[in-house]
């Protein structure tokens, strides 16, 4: 094994980037849906798909950063509700729309930073800390509004969710900018290398003198920040602060998007490109199920299956690496005879 492994790795190094596989799946799904449904292949549906996708993709972006460090943020969906309602409330109290935006973003950062502090300095597992935060962050808007939705009074606020720049919806533009910034930060800065290192081997990262606490707080704060942008988009699209927004599928979808996009739940592996393709895939599937008039109760079922498939691939990644897809699938049907040959 010791002799063959470097040679083997050189071959895998020449293989196409891992995003190509998931991108192919996305194209396939889009083509199939276009054939199956005339209403899917309309321009207005494409727009609504992208708009829905933008919220999921923002959550996925934050989720990805957290997953890369080996953590998870279960409070992202609740933060959407909290920040969306906070913006609406600020405006209801007479603040101009941009103050509402700042309030929401600051709140998102704060929620995330608190998560990071509890996880790193309090040594609480991420799963538990953010699970608890999910409860806290989803309760606050309910309590404040008595579970009633809050109408946004400042009309200018609608630009975030409904505006267009050169006929591209503002949320999509915002997402593009954010994704590019995160991609550059991950690939070209110290912060990026450190995030991957922490997910790859936390002890090694610590011994290398990386400031783990600061990075943990940063990634969770960013996750909260991106969730807040999601909350703003959602509130702005409906012009209503909706205290139960983000409590259903958003969190679920954001994790699904990251995982099918090739972000490892074990940390250290994944790219912005992959995660964004994954988010769009999830958005496409849910949208497709909608336009095909599939009972909405089936949506979670389908997404659940997709998550399982993604995680299954992730856990068996090492075993399946370097083998063409068809062979991989065949190998899986005949366990044991698969990889190490």
């Amino acid at each position: 094994m010791t002799v063959t492994s470097p040679a083997k790795s050189k071959m895998t190094g020449l293989r196409a980037p891992s995003e190509v596989g998931i991108f192919t799946v996305l194209i396939l799904v889009v083509v199939i849906l276009c054939i199956m449904s005339p209403s899917f292949r309309t321009f207005s549906n494409a727009l609504s798909l992208l708009l829905n996708g933008a919220v999921i993709a923002f959550l996925t972006l934050g989720q990805m950063l957290v997953l890369l460090t080996g953590g998870i943020d279960l409070s992202a969906g609740a933060t959407v509700a909290l920040t969306g309602v906070a913006a609406a409330m600020a405006m209801a109290y007479g603040a101009p729309w941009w103050v509402g935006v700042i309030v929401a973003l600051a709140l998102g950062l704060l929620v995330g930073a608190v998560n990071g502090f509890i996880i790193h300095y309090g040594r609480v597992p991420a799963f538990i800390a953010t699970f608890a935060m999910m409860g806290v962050a989803s309760a606050i808007p309910m309590v404040l509004t008595n579970a009633a939705s809050l109408t946004v009074v400042d009309g200018a606020f609608s630009v975030i969710g409904q505006g267009k720049i050169l006929s591209v919806p503002v949320p999509v533009v915002l997402l593009g900018v954010a994704a590019c910034i995160v991609a550059v930060a991950l690939a070209r800065t110290k912060f990026g290398v450190h995030v991957y290192a922490m997910g790859g081997s936390a002890p090694a990262a610590r011994l290398a003198g990386i400031n783990i606490g600061r990075n943990i707080v940063t990634v969770y704060a960013l996750s909260g920040f991106f969730a807040a942008i999601g909350g703003l988009i959602l509130t702005s699209r409906l012009m209503v602060g909706y205290p139960s927004a983000g409590l259903g599928n958003e969190l679920f979808y954001s994790i699904a998007g990251a995982v099918v996009g090739g972000v490892s739940l074990f940390g250290g592996v994944g790219t912005v490109g992959g995660a964004m393709i994954g988010a769009v895939l999830i958005a496409t599937v849910t949208n497709g199920l909608n336009v095909l008039n599939v009972n909405s109760y089936w949506q979670s079922f389908v997404i659940g299956i997709i998550i399982l498939a993604g995680v299954f691939y992730d856990t068996n990644r090492a075993r399946l690496r370097g083998i063409p897809l068809a062979k991989r699938l065949y190998a899986l049907t005949r366990r044991g005879s698969s990889s190490d040959a």
Binding site: V193, A197, G200, A204, L207
Partner: peptide, 19 residues
């Protein structure tokens, strides 16, 4: 236990924490 990150390449490991 070497304290290397398997998911990073040789350069990234050698410069980890002092890029």
């Amino acid at each position: 236990d070497l304290a290397l990150c398997e998911n990073l390449d040789i350069v990234q490991n050698m410069f980890l924490g002092r890029e």
